[in-house]
Design a protein around this nucleic acid. Sequence first.
DNA 1: TTAGGGTTAG
Length: 576
Amino acid sequence: MLASKVAILLAKRMTINQTKQIHAAILVNGLLDLESLLVQQIINSASSYSYYTSHYIKLVLNHVQNLDVFSVASTIRFYSRHCQFREAVNLYGKLQRCGLSPSTFAVSSALKACARILYRSGGISIHAQVYKYGFCNVVYVQTALVDFYSKVGNMDFARSIFNEMVEKNIVSWNSVLGGYVKSGDLTMAQSVFDEMPEKDVISWNSMVYGYARMGNIEQAYALFRQMPESSSASWNAMISGYVDCGKIELARSFFEAMGQKNNVSYIILISGYSKSGDVESAEELFGKLYKKDQLVYNAMIACYAQNSWAKEALQLFNAMLRLDLQPDEMTLASAISACSQLGDLKFGSWIESFIHETGIQMDDFLATSLIDLYAKCGSIDKAHKLFHGLKKKDLVAYTAMILGCGINGRAKDAIKLFDEMMNAEINPNIVTITGILTAYSHIGMVEEAYRCFISLQKYGLAPSVDHYAIVVDLLSRAGRLEEAHGLIKSMSIQPHAGVWGALLLGCSLHNNLELGEIAATRCIELEPDSSGYLSLLANIYASSGRWDDAERLRKGVEEKGYNKLPGCSWMEEVKA
DNA sequence: TTAGGGTTAG
């Protein structure tokens, strides 16, 4: 009686309170096997993943007394099918904590989830359990393992498991093929493709994508034309391949020629435009799409954030919240980056509390965006705390932290972090160098900065104009004006006014009239509307006793009506 | 078993 009531009510979509009541009734009547039915009914009746569904499931799973493997395994698969991979992995963990033995179904579903979020250690520990529970010869499990190792880029493991399989199905073949394509080994991919006893549309799509992303347009197009049947994924493979090799125009023409476009087609192009800095084209596409899902919003918000359109990123993020679309780790990482660009600590902190309240996983990407936010807004201790909590400190995390210390005048900490990074054998990039040079500059460590600058080549990096500006500034302040001038003259790229300005400032500090005149002339050529350079030159004339010249310049400044811009900070005011 | 979104400067 109660069982049929559960089924009926769930078919009608119960409210959360009704779910609670039904569950209570099940417990009161001691009908524990109905708990399993309750979970399965919820899953079967859920056509899509929504806030409601996830709430139902969590509610039941958290209160279930007799958790059974079948319900849990179905729920893991449900999560995976709806791209809730972290939830799937967490639930697999819960299954184990409850002392239940996993089924082959649970294992392969959990492996799939680990593969999708590139959760290496999770997948490897499930692999160990495969041996423990004797699932080694189950073709679904073996295939899930091949897929997992292919996706995380360990082709040696993937291949050895694949080779050991007595029975292989097309899924196993496609998994190993996809792995070679992803790792860029087209020779191996082609040989697997040629060896396959049968090929389906997925096998063809992998090859098309592989050749397109390597820039081999002719081969990609030839295969695309040759394939016996094509799907929307085939078109998307071409579009995505062209985007990956930087041929955005070609990607667009394929997109236009495509019949039934889907959200994936839009996302591939929006992110392509984002990478090429064409925000307007991305916006145009976004506007054209009628049914936008969470991932399309994420792509557009990321596009705004990556291209310094921070206000637009936050506006769209707010619009997403108003539409009741659930933001995830990726949405929030972009939104926090936008807050950081605006110095909007208030909104950024709100997002952090949102993360804690909604139970969103604070992964390293998200934590790094918060580190950057707090460091830029002066909360360096909070940034430090988050930095130490990272699972893996990568280049971006170190860089954000080094920059943060540099900005906050903690040059010694920045240098310590830089050394730590080098010891961890993480090579710096251009951004890291900017951070460390800024730090050296703060405390006037000329030699160290110069050495760091010279060592750029060691890492295959070309110094940017800003790097030159920092080093010229350091040398000039230290009175090494000739060296600074020599450095500018050796530049293979065009120096901007900041570089010459640094030399001019040094000349003003050390009263070098000859070089000061040269530097000021260059500055005025490059930025004729700025009065600061004239004033600095006037100072040099005055110090050298050339009062007439000093006066002439100061009068010139006054007559032209230059205004000194007041200093300003981007950091938004925070009311306690 | 295929295709899509995230963090660091200026």
